[in-house]
Design a protein around this nucleic acid. Structure first.
Length: 800
DNA sequence: CAGGTCCCGTTTTTT
DNA sequence: ACGGGACCTG
């Protein structure tokens, strides 16, 4: 699109220096729909940010015309950081954020049109569940019949499909009841002025769908839309993109760039639809598809392994990673007799990496399929005195004491937030028991009001206590009026007696610390997000600016002069979080949309432990992928269908591509799971790797089908001697003593052997668990698939 | 209201 | 095995 030669373009565009041809092509695509297939480690974020910088620098767009959407706050922050490092620019006008963050921004700006109070609060998953449970009590819903968790899943699913209660197809009585509950839940949320995560998306989608002026306004404004991790979008998110961009058929569908990798799609279980990629190409008439296949991360033994593994998937858009970095080391594979021994081995290897080869601990990661696997590893690391860090678990803003404090703060903003009301009405305890609360809830239901408004209807002592609580909040609200965020929070912690309560508690020290940390978090929020500087923005009026024609609005001061006039960014909301409200309100939104770090002891040079899912997007010099066993990885629960297995394989692909220089793969013959020893055979994924890129640290034998020699007849394993000595004579010395073990099961069914079933025919035993009458075996029948069979019932004969 | 007991679930997770 | 939540009792 530029007439200059490459060299000339580069001279003028230092931004483009150092990009490979595909990357440069992607960055400089014309303003038309495009799909970038970005392989792992191919410089995706760099392309995205350089694209934006290039568009700005060449004057094709002003900051206000950019909409960039990510999934996580981390990714959004990263994009913004890199962008501001590239170009000195005012990031204010840019809309870079997560789907939910941007939706929040839209809804705040147009709260009236969206039929929400400006102070609407956001329910996180916990809050949502408690809201549902509360609803159940009010309407006598049977928790047994409609488990709240399931209901929550149902509601989230409906919203992800864009369905309101009236849109849900009903086939039977149970379904009708579920939809009724969904309806009641919606009414409750509306009454209380709260929205859940799904609602943020759906409500803003509907806002755009139902208001022509608003929709047209944003379509005109956002001249360039970029979407990261497109393979992870769900149905509603894609619909949202379509409505904000406009399809070509509707005269829209201009410069929209979707970046993604179908091979790294690992979130189908939470609604992600890889199919959106193909739909996008079709519906936006995509003419530009670019594959980024040059990998800048890993050596080629590692990449070859990843490529070969993923080639076993049938459903792919097709892509192969390559590198200039040389072959590097082979992938090391280890078979351990037990999960315990596997963990020991991991720790030994790590010591060698750190002490012997001078690797930093934080450059070493141990990945596993499920969180339960971290335990053994942690024990070993702890005993060996190796500093480690586990990802996952409760995040800062999800901790009980922090949520209590936030509940008080939310009541200051919105007294009708019943979820928050109930959370703290008697916490710390102030003599308001279940009885009083019940009375209050009944009164509120009868009057059709929020709890706070029904307090006057509760007679006697209970009513007095409740009134005292409400008065306390009211006084706090008045007294903190106009104070800084820090002052508000400190005062709230004191006046609520939360601090006092935890200080008096025996094990309350951590909680007190977290509450103090909350003050710090608020403080850094204020400085980082610029509150206190110019937080008091214009009044929010969603019609302002929409009725006027763009031409009458003048130019964006940041916009370069172009022959084309750019519409001014929409008036009201435009700080980083889209807030125009008080710092407190902004902070509460921040807390709800960004739950904070979930890793302990940050900063220290520690080995990193995490699930494969959590590792996506990260990279390390050395990576251990542990527990490569059938049933665990690929996980049996994910393997009910073909799609499930392919997703597991993509998960393995993600895991492999985390490693820069060294990759270790391991599996254990036995593993303690849910208090029982399970006998697992090694993962099929190990068989799907290129033999030449692997280095077996333990003797290799047999294939997928022939595990555990010596186990193919019932007679052999009556021997209590746990049998590696026969198979791996060289391992006896090095292997750690095994933990005490129960005697061998008498039924003679063990993982790896072939059995015959009168109905299903011949099959292979994948796993055995339980003992005595409870013993069951998972058998893979060629014609019938995986089955769990109770050994006391099923007639299985061992096939020689 | 605290403190004990029973029972359930236990793949992956962000917002 | 183990932790969290619901439920019951003193």
């Amino acid at each position: 699109m530029f007439p200059q030669s490459d060299a000339a373009a580069q001279a003028e565009m230092p931004l483009l220096a150092g990009l490979n041809p595909e990357q440069r092509a992607a960055v400089t695509l014309p303003p038309e729909p495009a799909l970038i297939l970005a392989g792992a480690g191919s410089g995706k974020t760099r392309v995205l940010t350089t694209r934006i910088a290039w568009l700005l620098q060449t004057g094709q767009v002003s900051p206000g015309g950019v909409l960039a959407v990510t999934f996580t706050n981390k990714a959004a922050k990263e994009m913004l950081t890199r962008l501001t490092a590239m170009l000195p620019l005012n990031a204010r006008g840019m809309w870079i954020g997560t789907f939910h963050g941007l939706c929040n921004r839209l809804l705040r700006a147009h709260h009236k049109l969206a039929n929400l109070p400006q102070t609407f609060q956001i329910l996180d998953t916990q809050d949502q569940l408690s809201a549902i449970k509360r609803l159940y009590k009010q309407h006598n819903v049977d928790e047994e019949r409609f488990p709240p968790k399931q209901m929550q899943w149902f509601i989230a699913g409906c919203k992800e499909d864009g369905e309101r209660p009236r849109d849900v197809a009903v086939h039977d009585g149970d379904a009708r009841r579920k939809v009724e509950i969904y309806q009641l839940y919606e009414e409750q949320c509306q009454r209380e002025g709260v929205v859940d995560f799904g609602e943020l998306m759906l409500r803003s989608y509907e806002l755009l769908r139902d208001n022509d002026a608003v929709r047209e306004h944003y379509r005109r404004r956002f001249r360039h839309i970029l979407i990261d991790e497109f393979q992870d979008t769900n149905r509603l998110q894609y619909a949202w993109i379509k409505i904000i961009a406009g399809l070509p058929a509707e005269g829209g569908g201009g410069a929209i760039m979707a970046v993604g990798d179908d091979d790294q799609s690992i979130y189908a279980f939470r609604g992600a639809r890889v199919g959106n990629m193909a739909d996008f190409v079709r519906e936006f008439h995509v003419q530009h598809q670019i594959k980024l296949e040059q990998n800048y991360r890993s050596h080629s033994h590692i990449l070859d392994s990843a490529n070969q593994l993923i080639s076993h998937n049938k459903k792919r858009l097709g892509k192969e990673l390559r590198t200039d970095q040389g072959t590097g080391e082979q992938v090391r594979v280890y078979e351990a007799p037990s999960d315990f021994a596997e963990a020991e081995w991991v720790v030994d290897e790590m010591r060698q990496l750190v002490k012997g080869e001078g690797h930093e601990r934080k450059e070493i990661a141990v990945l596993y399929r499920s969180n339960a696997q971290s335990r053994v590893l942690e024990t070993q690391l702890f005993n060996a005195g190796v500093p480690y860090r586990v990802y996952g678990g409760l995040r800062f803003f999800e901790r009980a004491e922090v949520k209590h404090a936030l509940a008080y703060l939310r009541l200051l903003e919105n007294p009708r937030d019943d979820t928050s009301f109930l959370r703290v009405v008697n916490f710390p305890p102030r003599g308001i028991g279940a009885r009083s609360i019940e009375q209050l809830q009944d009164a509120a239901r009868d009057a059709g009001t929020a709890l706070v408004d029904a307090v006057g209807n509760v007679p006697g002592k209970a009513g007095g206590n409740l009134a005292a609580f409400v008065a306390r909040i009211d006084v706090l609200r008045e007294q903190t009026e106009g104070q800084t965020l820090r002052e508000i929070i400190e005062r709230t912690l004191d006046d609520s007696s939360l601090l006092e309560h935890y200080r008096a508690e025996r094990d309350g020290a951590d909680r007190v610390e977290n509450l103090e940390e909350l003050v710090n978090a608020a403080e850094s929020f204020v400085t980082q997000e610029g509150f206190g500087r110019d937080a008091v923005a214009l009044p929010v009026d969603e019609t302002a600016g929409l009725t006027q024609s763009p031409a009458s609005q003048g130019l964006d001061p940041n916009a370069p002069l172009l022959d084309e006039r750019l519409p001014e960014p929409p008036p009201p909301v435009d700080t980083d979080t889209g807030e125009t409200r008080s710092p407190l309100a902004a902070f509460l939104t921040h807390a709800a949309l960004e739950a904070g770090d979930n890793q302990a002891q940050a900063g220290q040079d520690a080995v990193q432990l995490m699930t494969v899912h959590a590792s996506k997007g990260l990279e390390f010099d050395a990576v251990f992928i542990t527990g490569l066993e059938e049933g665990l990885f690929p996980n049996e629960k994910a393997m009910s269908d073909f799609e499930g297995l392919e997703e597991e394989r993509r998960l393995m692909y993600v895991a492999i591509t985390r490693a820069r220089k060294r990759l270790y793969l391991s599996h254990a013959q036995t593993r303690l799971l849910h208090g029982q020893t399970r006998y697992n055979i090694k993962s099929r994924f190990l068989e799907e790797l290129p033999e030449g890129s692997l280095k077996w640290l333990t003797p290799r034998h047999g294939g997928f089908a022939s595990m555990m020699p010596g186990a193919h007849s019932g007679a052999n394993h009556a021997r209590p001697a746990w049998g590696n000595s026969a198979i791996y004579p060289d391992m006896v010395a090095s292997a750690a003593p095994l933990p005490p073990r129960k005697a061998e099961p008498a039924h003679g069914i063990r993982a790896g052997i072939k059995v015959f079933h009168t109905k299903f025919g011949e099959g292979q035993v994948m796993a055995v668990e339980g003992a005595g009458d409870d013993a069951r075996a998972q058998v893979d029948f060629p014609r019938h698939g995986l089955k769990w069979l109770a050994l006391a019932v099923a007639k299985l004969t061992v096939v020689e």
